[in-house]
Design a protein around this nucleic acid. Structure first.
Lengths: 169, 169
DNA sequence: AACACTCTTGACCGGTTGGTCGGTTTTATG
DNA sequence: CATAAAACCGACCAACCGGTCAAGAGTGTT
């Protein structure tokens, strides 16, 4: 067995992910070219295709890594109620500007089979948030709870878009 | 002077606008091709270029018509306070699914000189809404009023995305 | 009826894009 | 040290896209 993958394989993949995410978010996924993404990452286009099967696979990995990270953050902060959960989410958003933007506007560019698992991750976030709200407001009925959860995410996203310098809610 | 434009010139332009808007919204402006839009409208691609200078000009006309319509609706409902204004906006959204979606996600595809007048229309909507809020809550200071207005639009858009069968707020 | 211009089209074009290929360099392993 | 695979690249390709063009059909005006 001559050799396996390089010891920094994962690091380089992550670097590609990060660079490509910034480039995709800046130009819009559809308008952004693989050639451009490669230049931004300082590598040849062919190298990206060495690490990834294609443009969609790259986008999938970007979003998958981001959402998985979010799920982990939320799971860790779930015990502390909304007062800990919401700042934790906002803080995670702060470090992942490009990824968050892509999640909002480029998810639809993926075909069903790639989109589905990402949507599942999103749903898990929503479930956790819903649980946290229900824990503090046991009086809400199912529909209202659902609407409230969605509205919270809505406000969260809206504040994120217009409110760069983070101050508390 | 041999002849002017056909008597149904405006009607046909509007039909093109409507068909293209639906097609653009369904596929995303960047991914949507002019060939596809033409097929959707039941005409040849060359005909679209007879009515419009290009893809961007077509998108501009779609958004311009939509926003102008919204401005008109809001101006008409301005006297009645938020109780009339908000349902009026939601109702206008209802008839213009595709156009609204495009406004949210394809405006950025236009170059500055085309985007500017559309942003001006948006700002006019915001101003009117802000005025309506101020009329009912004279106690809000400038910053808070601005934030409140943005949040109202944020909630409006979020509800629109998830809440097809409209019930009152 | 003759004209001039709009309306409408299929065929075509240059440029860009996602993706591939053949080959060179590098490196872990035996 | 030999070697086989990974890491990396420049050049290339087919497909598609926005846009053009030349030409025919239809129509209001003189």
């Amino acid at each position: 067995m001559p050799r396996g993958v390089a010891h920094d394989h994962d690091r380089k993949r992550a670097a590609l992910r990060k660079g490509a995410a910034a480039y995709f978010a800046a130009h819009g996924f559809d308008r952004a070219s693989m050639t451009g993404a490669a230049q931004r990452c300082g590598v040849s286009k062919a190298l990206i295709y060495h690490y990834y099967d294609g443009k969609e696979a790259l986008l999938f990995d970007i979003l998958d890594a981001h959402l998985s990270d979010l799920v982990q953050v939320v799971a860790a902060a779930r015990g502390g109620g909304l007062d800990q959960l919401i700042p934790a989410i906002l803080s995670a958003y702060e470090d992942a500007d490009a990824e968050h933007k892509l999640q909002l506007e480029a998810l639809g560019a993926l075909p069903e089979d790639l989109r589905a698992p990402l949507v599942a991750l999103q749903r898990r976030l929503i479930t956790d948030m819903s649980g946290a709200i229900a824990a503090e407001r046991a009086d809400l009925d199912t529909d209202t709870l659902r609407a409230t959860t969605m509205t919270v995410f809505g406000i969260l996203n809206w504040f994120y878009m217009w409110h760069r310098p983070g101050r508390g809610l």
